[in-house]
């Protein structure tokens, strides 16, 4: 009984901290960076992204994950990163987001976020780290997280491959792609107004469309077998279960 109430207290503290960050720390950050650093969109957004990403990492650390869980996570991230190589003969085909979403569907949103963020970070060791790294981590993380959430409310489902694949494509073109475009808008440092925003997103649209089609195709072809493989590992060894 007592343990339960301690647990409850912890939850209340955690929720309070979350609310404080969202309603207090984040607006304050925007205010101070605006006031003292000029309208530095990139720096402000970077700090906000850190506030958004760090809790996921801290939760993972706090849980003191088992060796099996960590190795599985690493393996999925490595597959997501290396999958690009398997499609090297198809130009502009990026299957990484699809694999991140599959892991989100199978293991839940939190794992999806971690896989997305870590894969984006590590893939930049192969390509190049740059000001885009935190944004990519955030964008792909959100992709995995949303896939996990959609799977939890039974909108994305293993036995509905077409619907899942289309939703995956929509996630890319509506969420992940625009987030990456926002990064280029901020890093280029050009004046932000209606026309520059419209131009950036329109210029990004063709690339995002290709990315979305690649994600859709990968999810359609590989979604079901991959998810089942992950489910099997989950059931057989009892890992990566969402509480």
């Amino acid at each position: 009984m007592q343990e339960k109430s301690v647990e409850k207290n912890k939850n209340i503290i955690r929720d309070t901290i979350k609310l404080l960050i969202v309603f207090f720390v984040m607006p304050l950050t925007i205010f101070f960076t605006w006031k003292y650093a000029g309208n530095k969109y990139y720096l402000t957004s970077l700090i906000l992204i850190i506030f958004a990403v760090v809790p996921f990492f801290l939760r993972f650390e706090k849980r003191k994950p088992e060796a099996r869980e960590m190795v599985t996570l690493a393996v999925i991230c490595a597959i997501a990163v290396i999958s690009r190589v398997a499609f090297s003969m198809v130009p502009h085909f990026k299957p990484m987001a699809a694999i991140i979403m599959i892991s989100g569907i199978a293991f839940g949103g939190e794992a999806g976020f971690l896989v997305g963020a870590i894969s984006a970070f590590v893939s930049n060791f192969v390509f190049m780290q740059g000001p885009w790294t935190p944004w990519q981590m955030f964008a792909y993380g959100i992709g995995g997280l949303l896939a996990g959430v959609l799977a939890k409310v039974k909108i994305m489902k293993v036995d509905k491959p077409l619907r899942t694949a289309i939703l995956g494509g929509v996630l890319i073109i509506a969420v992940v792609g625009p987030l990456l475009d926002t990064c280029s808008l901020f890093t280029m440092g050009i004046e932000i107004n209606k026309s520059s925003i419209a131009t950036t997103y329109l210029a990004g649209l063709p690339l995002n469309a290709v990315h979305a089609v690649a994600t859709l195709a990968t999810l359609l072809l590989i979604g079901k077998p991959m998810t089942e493989k992950l489910y099997r590992i989950q059931r057989k060894y009892g890992i990566m279960r969402e509480e």
């Binding site: 994950p65 690493a74 991230c77 490595a78 870590i118 894969s119 970070f121």
Partner: peptide, 11 residues
């Protein structure tokens, strides 16, 4: 971040 850096090294 001990666990994350293990994951990172493994990847």
């Amino acid at each position: 971040t001990p666990s994350l850096s293990v994951v990172f090294t493994m990847v």
